[in-house]
Design a protein around this nucleic acid. Structure first.
Length: 488
RNA sequence: GGCGGUGUAGCCAAGUGGUAAGGCAGAGGACUGCAAAUCCUUUAUCCCCGGUUCGAAUCCGGGUGCCGCCUCCA
């Protein structure tokens, strides 16, 4: 079986073959640190995180780099407004970023290069371009000469004429051609700058990524990722710069995630059309947000609606409920003879369990089809729930089969960074207290002290702990955060 | 205007020639002291029009809606 990925460069799904057997060099465009993250950023981060995890699951060693753009016009403006340096501003948002990624279950990248820490590499790269005749100076600014790079436009599938036809090209006297872009920007009064052979100034946005990727991963990388909105001009320019400098193919696979929209408009800071990530995480929790973002195929556009996020919480809960039930049923010791019907169900379920990992790989190998993965999980959950219905006693064979399903789902969950055991996060002490309360309440129930028992249940519920009285005993679980948000 | 993507139930979303998965929500029922969970039942002229085919959501042609990019943006 082969992993197939959609490559923006060719516009086709292609078999994934890295440069070096079993090794993947992956670079994903990170964020510019001038404002809080929104759900759209989270989408990109989660998507490339699970792609990375899946590649590792498939046996590749992945070197994963994502950058921080820590110098840029908007940052300068913002820092000025706040009366702090852009470095302080950057650090503040990096801290937020790190915390939020953790909540989202996004694993840390191998490195997080920052533009300001790669100035030497950036300057060297521009120098090389200048030596090769791809760059020209204009009064302290340096521009890339697009006409010198005939392949320009390959990624966005546009040629120069088509780009010229684009109505919104600015007219910039300094450029030879309107499509040329800045590699280095001359220092401006009161703004941060760095020394260079061309005088003081700072790098253009596009060159940063090329330099950082090449510094940490070499001239050629396997996967370059980012949002669709970066295809042009950012990634197009990256290709031009990198390939002009090295004469080598820069990235083999260009993977772009679909954008998150809101009220069918792209979610973007520049338009103020955003739903903040911090808000989303607070209201729904990291796992729900992650599940929500993964429930759509990574390439399709996703229109944010609060309702959908709430639905995601319910869906996730279904899986988690099953996982917990399957866990608890292991402790059951009674043996019961199964009916013919139940025997058949156990058999069917065992078959299903045996197929799950294969189905998972099949779905993911086809350009990372997470929606398909979930449907297979739900089907297994349904079959398993049917078997556990009413909490009637089962035999060991049935319990083992349920355990197997649970293990399979957890295995998938590991790759997707989902279905974690929340009780673990609660800590042992808290769990013990809750167990104690539940025990006491059971005693009350035996005495038919319904009023008091209900009160305990109600109060625990207010604290986010849901009780469930099954036929044999009472179990508890943490409520999805959205449940508490539901009433709002 | 150019380029790219996308259009399947109230919502999310599979399906790439064989007669529409799955989830959420809604309705009804079973179970339960109640609740929750769970189970059962129920919800689609697959954007439109032509064509190919015994047969099309799926292939071909033509429309059309929406989104993104063409300016900083995941």
């Amino acid at each position: 079986m082969a992993l197939v990925v959609y490559n923006t460069l060719t516009g086709k799904k292609e078999e994934f073959i890295p440069l070096k057997d079993k090794e993947v060099k992956m670079y994903v465009c990170g964020v510019t640190l001038y404002d809080q993250l929104h759900l759209g950023h989270a989408r990109a981060a989660v998507i490339f995180d699970f792609i990375r995890r899946y590649l590792e699951y498939r046996g590749y060693r992945v070197k994963y780099i994502t950058n921080f753009t820590d110098v840029d016009d908007k940052m300068i403006d913002r820092a000025k407004a706040l009366g702090i340096s852009i470095f302080e501003l950057a650090n503040k948002f990096i801290e937020e970023y790190t915390e939020q990624m953790k909540i989202l279950g996004v694993r840390r990248a191998d490195e997080y290069p920052r533009a300001t820490e790669c100035m030497n590499e950036i300057i060297d790269l521009i120098k090389r371009l200048e030596e090769k005749g791809f760059a020209y100076r204009r009064n302290g600014d340096i521009f890339f000469r697009i006409k010198k790079f005939p392949q320009y436009g390959a990624l966005s599938h546009q040629n120069l004429e088509e780009l010229y036809a684009g109505a919104r090209l600015e007219i910039d006297e300094r450029k030879i051609d309107a499509v040329d872009f800045a590699l280095w920007k001359k220092e401006r009064e009161g703004e941060p700058s760095w020394d260079s052979p061309w005088g003081k100034g700072r790098p253009g946005w596009h060159i940063e990524c090329s330099a950082m990727a090449m510094k940490l991963l070499g001239d050629q990388i396997d996967i370059h990722g980012g949002g669709r909105d970066l295809i042009f001009p950012h990634h197009e320019n990256e290709i031009a710069q990198s390939e002009a400098a090295t004469s080598k193919r820069f990235a083999r696979y260009w993977i772009h995630n679909g954008l998150l929209t809101m009220r069918t408009q792209k979610m973007a800071k520049s338009t103020g059309n955003v739903f903040n990530l911090s808000q989303a995480l607070e209201r729904f929790g990291g796992e729900t947000v992650r599940y929500y973002l993964l429930s759509a195929h990574y390439r399709s556009p996703l229109d944010y609606r609060e309702e959908t996020l709430r639905e995601a919480a319910s869906s996730l809960e279904r899986i988690q409920n099953f996982l917990q039930r399957a866990q608890e049923i292991q402790e059951e010791e009674r043996e019961a003879a199964l009916s013919r019907n139940e025997e058949e169900r156990v058999q069917a379920l065992a078959q299903r369990a045996g197929r799950m990992e294969h189905d998972f790989v099949l779905a993911m190998d086809d350009d990372f089809s997470t929606p398909l993965v979930f449907s297979s999980v739900f089907e297994a959950v349904k079959m398993a729930n049917l078997l556990m219905r009413k909490g009637a006693p089962l035999n060991k064979d049935a319990r083992d089969t349920l355990l197997r399903v649970r293990k399979e789902i957890e295995k998938i969950g590991e790759v997707l960074s989902l279905f974690g055991d929340e009780k673990k996060d609660l800590g042992k002490d808290a769990s013990q207290f809750i167990d104690l309360l539940v025990d006491l309440r059971d005693k009350l129930r035996e005495k038919k002290e319904w009023k008091l028992a209900d009160e305990i249940r109600k109060k625990l519920s207010a604290l986010g702990i849901e009780l469930e009285d099954t036929r044999t005993r009472t179990v508890w679980r943490l409520k999805e955060q959205s449940s508490s948000a539901r009433g709002r």
